[in-house]
Nucleic acid binder design. Structure first.
Lengths: 131, 131
DNA sequence: ATAGACCTTCCCATGATGGGAAGGTCAAGG
DNA sequence: CCTTGACCTTCCCATCATGGGAAGGTCTAT
């Protein structure tokens, strides 16, 4: 299976497949006589794994750890859970930050008449930060 | 005022002050005979403005627009509000995405016993993506 | 005079992703 | 047999905001 087919089968672009290989996240693909990468079902599976983990926001470093655990049939699920828990906590922290931003901005937007007049509480806040 | 003093006064690091100048976000500072940058109150004000806008998640491009509007005393507040509204919408979209991730992960974490046993719904989900 | 705290510019790195160039390979059709 | 177009390869560059660090110049206090 060429890289293009593997990309179609996994949902990971060829570009990213090469990238994942270069950073050691995906195993180096077999090479054919013409130097083309050659993929099998197992590789496609790994790529799908990576894709799904990325969709859940895991970093490549975290995914590397998760893949290693997945390959280790004797893994303690504790470790998997720890990684996931830490990631959830990180997500929640970032969500809280962004909600604070959005909340402040919504208040400012609500106070701004938003017409042709120049008076604007949004700019006032940015300029002075008084509040 | 040297760049270090301006950094202390504005809360923007010297490194970032130079960067903002290089990308055209901050006005180029006056230079003294020794080539040191020289800042005045107005510059510090602008830097604080930038700092506060960054804290609210605005991109440098958006901040450039906001600064221009702030300097234009005849601006229509409509334009400021439009920028802020678009940014709020973007924040909300990203928050929703991350909440979806966190929600999925919380469910998986809750289903994982997290002990020394290898069985793990988190890995199962990543590996097969059944659901 | 010297030490240490500044300042300057320039290059490199981050993390995940993509664009694009230059060049090799393969398959199908004239 | 040759051409065309769709592949593939590697390599470099860009994004975005931020920081590290080197090499070298300047200022200030002792």
């Amino acid at each position: 299976m060429n890289i293009g087919a593997a990309a179609a089968a996994s949902g990971v672009t060829a570009k990213m497949i090469r990238h994942y290989e270069s950073i050691g996240l995906a195993r180096p693909a077999e090479r054919r006589a013409n130097a083309y990468r050659d993929y099998g079902e197992r590789d496609v599976h790994d790529l799908r794994f990576i894709k799904r983990a990325r969709r859940l926001g895991f970093s490549t470093a975290e995914i590397a750890a998760l893949l290693a655990l997945w390959r280790d049939s004797a893994r303690p699920s504790r470790e998997v859970r720890r990684i996931a828990e830490r990631h959830v906590a990180e997500l929640e922290a970032r969500i809280a930050e962004m909600q604070a931003m959005a909340g402040t901005l919504r208040a400012l937007v609500g106070a701004c008449c938003g017409d042709e007049r120049p008076d604007c509480p949004i700019l006032d806040d940015l300029a002075q930060g008084v509040v």
